[in-house]
Simulated scan of single mutants.
Amino acid sequence: MMNDTFTLYNLRVEVIETDKPMVCGHNAGDYFLVIGEDIIFPENNSFSMYALSSILPLLPAKQRMLHPNDWMLSDSVIACPDPNCGAVFKITRIDTKEFSHSECTVEPIHKGEG
């Protein structure tokens, strides 16, 4: 049987304080985890849906192996989308997890295609 495993980074997304006041209900130290396709909010943590909308598009790329020169590897601090809010969100790779292609999709692996 063909090995169909692949590795993704697990992520921690944490609210970081700046010198500008946070006005969107963010609290320094609040965080959530990304493990595979799951977003895990620890008890008593919440995130604005607007802040999440600015972070979510970046998470799949941050989970994957990247070329050392790719800006996606170095840029890990995301500003709150509210221009009046001083919160920023730091995306940190915390460890890795193996996944199986066949457990994630019914589409077959096509070698040599896009």
Rank of each mutant, 00 (worst) to 15 (best):
M1R: 13
N3F: 04
N3Y: 11
N3I: 10
D4W: 09
D4M: 10
T5L: 08
F6W: 03
T7I: 05
T7S: 01
L8A: 00
Y9R: 12
L11P: 00
L11M: 03
V15M: 12
T18Y: 06
K20M: 12
K20N: 03
K20T: 14
M22N: 07
M22R: 12
V23H: 08
C24P: 09
G25T: 12
H26N: 07
H26L: 15
H26W: 12
A28C: 15
F32N: 09
F32E: 03
F32K: 02
V34A: 01
D38E: 06
D38Q: 04
I40N: 01
F41V: 00
F41C: 04
F41R: 00
P42T: 08
N44Y: 04
F47Q: 07
M49D: 13
M49S: 10
L52C: 08
L52M: 14
S53F: 07
S53H: 08
I55S: 09
I55C: 11
I55M: 10
L56W: 01
L56V: 02
P57C: 07
P57F: 13
P57W: 09
P57T: 09
L58W: 10
L59H: 10
P60T: 06
P60F: 13
K62Q: 02
R64P: 00
R64S: 00
R64T: 02
M65F: 12
M65P: 01
L66Q: 06
L66C: 03
H67E: 06
H67V: 00
P68N: 04
M72K: 15
L73Q: 09
L73T: 02
D75M: 14
D75F: 13
D75P: 00
A79C: 09
D82W: 12
P83K: 06
N84A: 04
C85Q: 09
C85F: 12
V88D: 08
F89R: 05
D95F: 13
D95T: 14
K97H: 14
K97P: 00
K97N: 15
K97L: 10
E103R: 15
E103H: 09
C104L: 15
C104S: 11
I109V: 12
H110M: 09
E113H: 08
G114T: 05
